[in-house]
Design a protein around this nucleic acid. Structure first.
Lengths: 231, 231
DNA sequence: CCTACCGATCGGTAGG
DNA sequence: CCTACCGATCGGTAGG
């Protein structure tokens, strides 16, 4: 699992690292990841060449391979970072809820946070995972699937509670697929700075998926903080 | 606009058409389109080579270019046929409704029909449009956008009516984006022959998006047959 | 991280 | 529709 503080050391070919301090290895590696995420999102994994990525950070065509074993490894890191960010964002959102938050408030927070992951400042990463999934190797897909399973599992107790209250009328497991699909598809049409804000979209989504809020007042809360989804 | 009965005549290079009757030009062209749709869906447009497509129908690498100007032209035809099929399917579904069909029944029919387009026997075509959109040229995109606009416009009077009845609580324009997104995303997870049938998914979708059915009994119908969407 | 390069593959074409 | 081919581009590497 990658953290931005402890990147893998670069491959041991070539000169030992002794460069200008403001452009050290970590920076260059980071720039490659950001450029790859942006280009993979804009043109797709197959439609992006390693030369495109190199040029985006002012390198020559062979140089990205000093930092990454392969183009696929770069995709893998982009997707891993995307999931790490999404998971942290979800954890923060749930932790920020007041103790007595209703299931409706919890769902609202999850939806708003998911929109942030899809359209906020780190928006290049998760859409790459969503739409370039097939270019991961089977082993990579399996690893990432465990992360997305955990992410999605956090929705289950909230949807179960809402179903129990009668404000969510579909089966929770199916509702989760439809709801996440509705949100994920917004990558195709949402324009930041356009007519709809993410706050407004969150309200609209809740209005679409849940019956009238009056019914859910004072309902029992769901169980404790989520990240424990699947033991 | 392509129809399967009147394909463009093949390019005029090479021998005049004088082959076995069971493998005439129309058949070969058709086979190429079907193979391209299947491969574009499975591996993406960029991830599919024209050699892959040729091999899938037992041709040599250069032969697809006897039938199509370019790989992009093949994608264009796949997407055009997908939209032609989807539009016809929608028209048939609305025409099959009884005269007094409620807005809820109309939405149910639209959802069921959309699932059929996504997962039925012609399921390779529309998903290619949804997920390989960016590989169309700007001019092609514009042409296809007019078709998708018309397709989606048929949902508007139905959603407006349901909103008026109070069973659809989100703004109809936003609801349409979310609902079509939820359905389109099923391409990512639906497995034909799996636990859920398309009929069950339709019921679940209606349950998720609409408030209790009792409220909508005897409500006024929406206006006439749809295909007239945007003048 | 650059220079210089490789083998493979790609979309596409001439000519029959 | 095949044969034979082309120029361009691709991911990746040796060596410094």
């Amino acid at each position: 699992m990658p953290t931005s503080l402890a990147p893998d050391t670069p491959k041991k070919r070539g000169r030992p690292p002794k460069q200008r301090a403001d452009l050290d290895e970590g920076n260059r590696r980071r720039q490659l990841i950001e450029a790859a995420a942006r280009l993979f999102r804009a043109k797709g994994f197959e439609g992006t060449s390693t030369r495109d990525i190199a040029a985006a950070v002012g390198m020559r065509s062979g140089s990205p391979f000093y930092h990454f074993e392969s183009k696929n490894a770069l995709l893998h890191v982009v997707v891993q970072e995307g999931m790490a960010f999404a998971t942290q964002s979800q954890k923060d959102a749930l932790a920020a809820l007041p103790q007595g938050a209703s299931a409706r408030e919890q769902l609202s927070s999850l939806v708003r946070q998911h929109f942030e992951v899809l359209h906020g400042p780190r928006a290049d990463f998760i859409p790459v995972m969503l739409y370039e999934w097939r270019s991961l190797t089977p082993a990579q897909r399996q690893e990432i699937a465990a992360l997305t399973d955990a992410y999605e599992a956090c929705w289950t107790p909230v949807l179960d509670a809402l179903h129990g209250q009668g404000v969510l009328r579909a089966a929770p497991a199916t509702a989760r697929l439809f709801i996440l699909g509705a949100l994920n598809w917004s990558v195709q049409w949402f324009k930041p700075g356009g007519a709809r804000s993410l706050d407004e979209l969150t309200d609209q989504a809740l209005a679409l998926f849940l019956a009238s809020p009056a019914q859910s007042a004072g309902a029992p809360r769901t169980q404790r903080s989520c990240p424990s989804g699947r033991a």
